[in-house]
Design a protein around this nucleic acid. Sequence first.
DNA 1: AAAGGGCATAATGTCGACATTATTTGTTTT
DNA 2: AAAACAAATAATGTCGACATTATGCCCTTT
Lengths: 229, 229
Amino acid sequence: MPATDEITSDSKDNFASKVMIQLKQDILIGFFKPGEKLLMSRLKERYQVGISPLREALSQLLVEQLVVVENQRGFKVHPISLQEMHDIYQSRALIEQLCISLAIERGDDEWEAGILASAHKMQKFSDCIESHPHEWEKRHQDFHTAIASGCQSPTLLQVRRSLYEKASRYRNLWLNKNMPDPKVFATNQRQHQDLITALLQRDIPLAKQLIAEHLLSPSLLLGKNDSLQ
Amino acid sequence: MPATDEITSDSKDNFASKVMIQLKQDILIGFFKPGEKLLMSRLKERYQVGISPLREALSQLLVEQLVVVENQRGFKVHPISLQEMHDIYQSRALIEQLCISLAIERGDDEWEAGILASAHKMQKFSDCIESHPHEWEKRHQDFHTAIASGCQSPTLLQVRRSLYEKASRYRNLWLNKNMPDPKVFATNQRQHQDLITALLQRDIPLAKQLIAEHLLSPSLLLGKNDSLQ
DNA sequence: AAAGGGCATAATGTCGACATTATTTGTTTT
DNA sequence: AAAACAAATAATGTCGACATTATGCCCTTT
């Protein structure tokens, strides 16, 4: 019975799966720029695999709308637009409101405990944001995932994950210069604390309002926030 | 300048795209049963293509969770379960409520006109349900899509489409014997009319209640409908 | 000199073949 | 006779190569 390597859990998967994860990351962090043509020769060299796994990985990212395909002209990185960013952020806020509402209705003691545990791990890491931004990003994500997971709906959680990934692309490309700002960081910490309070009090309207403000604040570079009760 | 074949619009796409559509249909209608192993040799023979386009198509359906892949053991049709059916139907109802709420807030005259037009085309086809069930299904779908499209959110509409497809699988597999029932059909027609009235009156709470009842009625074979305000 | 057409280059899309891995069948041993 | 091991069969995953199609360059023509 093999004991180790349960962390990565992909040492036995096929090439397409591994390449898909790497390629997705490269697109999300902006190594491949929006609209950029994805040459097969370049991808082959970068990921050290043949054409077949590459095309399978690209086919998967096609469904996730991270790449686009033109008739007989190969693959390109999905272009970005202010319009799409607003739509994604708005939709993400609505889905997150949905998950949180359901979580408040369905969440049990374990759900509450998970929120407090992940919040603690996030807050203990507050001082290391600038030194390890990637790890802090993970703990922040884990905190919000702990909240949303209380909805107990795999379908909604998968939609939520997909929207998170697309939004993170815009965050990395356009608005990742506001994280080291201590002003907005203090605001974020306060938002987290208020959210936890609202959750434990099972105050659905307040929690919905708080999560919407929290998620949409980075995208308020340009206005246009309407209709989220 | 080529004039024709804009109807299918896929006569020039690559094989993987065409095979994906056909294979998706075959899974949704139940030609390939849930959990069934998808032999490459059989797929090659059925769709008359090589392995490469097949694997690309399967990779796409993997993301849409219509097939699953086991380590080095090939592809299988995604299994079904009562639990997943409830989750999909519940999530679909919530997403549809979201789209309709936004549509009522954002919809203009053209939105209203589109609803009435598609409703008319659906009702004129009421007598032909048993003779052309497929065409009636399309008009029914067009009617609801006309309503939801008023939300003007490509992201939400895509989520909605994905959930519709998954739900249609369960409808085809488990509960497609209640359509010719005249009793439930009359109820459906009444539900449509009430929904249109609520939409034109911009009554969001009523519209949300009506659409939830309409979408969840087929899945009420077993209870468990909670929390849709 | 600019525009259009034709040729050369390059990239994509697809297939067949090979190596690896799982499954089944048959044999042997207890 | 049942279980376990081994060989044979079959299916998957990957790569290289070929045909098709797009792109860029150069030459010709007005």
